[in-house]
Amino acid sequence: MTKRFGHKAARAQQILLSVLMETLEGSELCFPQLLNTSCRKTGRPHFETMLIYILLSSLSLITAVLNLLVIISISHFKQLHTPTNLNLLSLAVSDFFVGLLIFFQIMLIDGCWFLGDLMCVVYQYLAYIITSASIGTMVIISVDRYVAICHPLHYSTKVTQKRVQVCISLCWMCSVILHSLNLKDILKQPGRYNSCIGECVFFISYIAGLVDLICSFIIPITVIVVLYIRVFVVAVSQARAMRSHIAAVTLQKSVKVTAKKSEMKAARTLGVVVVVFVICTCPYYCVALTGQDNLLNAAFVTFEIFLIYVNSCLNPLIYAFFYPWFRKSIKLIVTLKILQPDSCDALML
């Protein structure tokens, strides 16, 4: 009788231990009710997880708000409807969406995706499109500054608002078409590469990855660097010429010199934007170019993605530092003066 009772007690202890083990395992799963098919959560210390949450949430909010201010400023005030500012508007739109996409990245902190396979594909698809559109906009900005500095007499006839609008539209359309082709298999069958429920990953073919690398990085960066080297050389020579002849200019020429300085300042400001963009995006694409991404740890890959997010937040700060019209427009927006009649006709420059 004692042996039978001891056997039952031992059996009960085994069952209890088994239940406790399943509970502990279930607590580490994305979907505890799916023990055999659920993905496991990423094991991070609580302090580290909370720090990442706070950092990404703050970055997302600041990025979205600052770029929304740029979008409202350029869209509302008629005096800011210039070809150069239309390029900045396109860049601000892409950066604004980056700020929104950071919220999706926050959901992946613990390694679990709860929105389903379709939303995973939509998130990744939009991320590819926005990144390519940003790079394409940077190319358009470089061309704009190249024509303004190197061919100033033809700028007003070659660079018009309508042509810039067409170029920006083509930039976004090409980005959509390119990544629709690259990701067509994944768009048809979301979640085909997931190994468990709660995962948000996918792979593209070698050819598609190579096309994306060439079209979204190598060609645009080459064009940007070449054009801005040319702009820099011409800007330096023009600055020297203006300093050497400053004493002999007439009033009429003085106006031309002032206009030239304005173009030079715009070139310098947008040059800072381009340089910051290249610094923030090069690490990600350079790793892809070398093909050594599998050898790098997750921390470095996370840092690369974080740099891209930071770049979208830095652009409005650069505008605020260099452009008085942006600082003035922020005051009008914050104080709600843009709601007044005829506020769109306010003098901003």
Rank of each mutant, 00 (worst) to 15 (best):
192 R>P: 04
216 S>F: 02
35 L>N: 08
246 I>N: 04
257 V>I: 12
267 A>P: 01
155 Y>H: 09
209 G>Y: 03
146 Y>A: 02
134 S>Y: 08
35 L>A: 14
146 Y>V: 02
231 V>N: 01
83 P>Y: 04
135 I>T: 07
305 I>T: 13
187 L>F: 05
17 L>E: 12
92 A>I: 04
122 V>Q: 04
151 H>G: 01
47 F>C: 15
121 V>K: 04
314 L>D: 01
235 A>N: 02
186 I>Y: 05
119 M>V: 14
245 H>E: 12
192 R>M: 10
72 I>D: 07
74 I>S: 09
284 Y>C: 09
112 C>H: 05
161 Q>R: 11
50 M>F: 15
264 M>W: 03
76 H>P: 05
302 T>A: 10
53 Y>N: 10
132 S>P: 00
107 M>A: 15
171 C>N: 09
218 I>Y: 01
338 I>K: 03
29 L>F: 01
178 L>R: 11
38 S>P: 02
30 C>V: 03
158 K>F: 12
308 I>L: 13
349 L>G: 13
139 V>Q: 00
219 I>M: 00
29 L>N: 06
99 G>N: 00
220 P>E: 04
197 I>G: 08
134 S>P: 04
299 A>D: 11
64 A>F: 08
143 V>P: 00
71 I>F: 02
72 I>M: 09
37 T>M: 11
162 K>M: 06
313 C>I: 02
215 C>K: 07
298 A>N: 13
128 Y>F: 08
283 P>V: 10
150 C>E: 06
120 C>K: 09
321 F>T: 15
322 F>I: 05
13 Q>I: 12
262 S>I: 13
30 C>M: 04
193 Y>L: 11
134 S>C: 11
295 L>W: 10
104 F>P: 08
206 Y>A: 14
131 T>L: 07
106 I>M: 14
86 L>A: 12
172 W>Y: 08
66 L>H: 06
163 R>T: 05
52 I>C: 10
79 Q>N: 13
47 F>D: 15
177 I>N: 02
279 I>L: 10
1 M>N: 15
327 R>M: 01
204 I>C: 03
242 M>G: 11
326 F>C: 03
235 A>R: 05
262 S>Q: 12
306 F>S: 10
70 V>T: 04
126 L>Y: 08
18 S>E: 15
288 A>I: 10
19 V>G: 11
69 L>F: 05
231 V>E: 01
99 G>Q: 03
199 E>K: 12
292 Q>N: 15
45 P>C: 13
126 L>W: 03
280 C>K: 02
137 T>N: 01
299 A>M: 11
293 D>P: 08
44 R>T: 15
162 K>G: 05
111 G>E: 04
305 I>G: 09
157 T>N: 09
58 S>R: 10
281 T>Y: 15
120 C>L: 08
125 Y>D: 03
152 P>L: 07
38 S>F: 07
85 N>L: 05
269 T>Y: 03
15 I>W: 13
182 N>P: 08
212 D>K: 05
71 I>N: 00
286 C>A: 14
315 N>I: 14
195 S>Y: 13
124 Q>K: 12
290 T>W: 13
248 A>Q: 14
175 S>E: 01
317 L>Y: 06
159 V>P: 00
181 L>I: 15
26 G>I: 04
346 A>K: 14
73 S>D: 06
322 F>L: 06
147 V>I: 06
185 D>S: 06
81 H>W: 11
231 V>I: 07
252 Q>A: 12
234 V>T: 07
30 C>G: 04
285 Y>M: 12
129 I>H: 00
